[in-house]
Amino acid sequence: MKVGLFIPCYIDQFYPQVAIATMELLEKLCCEVVFPLNQTCCGQPMANSGFANLDKGCDKNFVNNFSGVDYIVSPSGSCVLHVKEHLHDEDESKSLQIRSHIYELTEFIVDVLAVPNITAAFPHRVGMHVSCHGQRGLHLSSMSELVAPTFSKPAQLLGMVTGLVLTQPKRVDECCGFGGTFCVFEEAVSAKMGKDRVSEHEANNVEYITGVDVSCLMHMEGILKRQGSKIKTIHIAEILNSMEAVTVSN
């Protein structure tokens, strides 16, 4: 199957290792991966700031890049959700085709590829950060507010990784406070939220914090680095693509 890799702008610019891991992982899982070279952004930064009306150019570019693949996969729940909910085109059949075939990486692996196992090893204590848009928007995992069975697609995949010990913060799915432009326009609340998230992971003695959204991880990384913490952030694709201690048996 032909998978169009959608790498959101800030991952392309600042976190190429996440994109590389995503690509390699999908290839390992037998996908034919293409990376349309003229992609930029999903348009979420403008829309979430109240400027969805400025998204036309971005949308058009997105449709131009991603028409004609079987699936579109991205290592960002937030950007995927935005495309799913808000992508438009003069020819709406094109945008609807994309909107119904775009997946966040872990939901793609669990729901579409439905792989029974993943060969990966990451012998570390890892804290799970649940990203709001992936969880409450894409339903990648159950939500603490609802009376419903619990599940987690990302945790299900991390459970296949040899040596990995997964921990949950006390408040299992509270927002990290990034929120796009919220992080600068509401700087005080945003940073406080981030500090509180990080401290709950610290209490669990984690070495890494992982999640499905680079934006949340970038936020917490900024705080961890400022605090001089030893805890690192790492995207779930990097863990699933990792073979750190190669003692895996198939």
């Binding site: 790498i7 392309d12 600042f14 190429p16 990376f35 326009f185 705080i223």
Partner: peptide, 20 residues
Amino acid sequence: PWYKQREMPTPPKQSFRDWY
């Protein structure tokens, strides 16, 4: 405002697109 309480990400030399 980001920098008040958070470090900026470390910029890599090349983008993913360049690598690709």
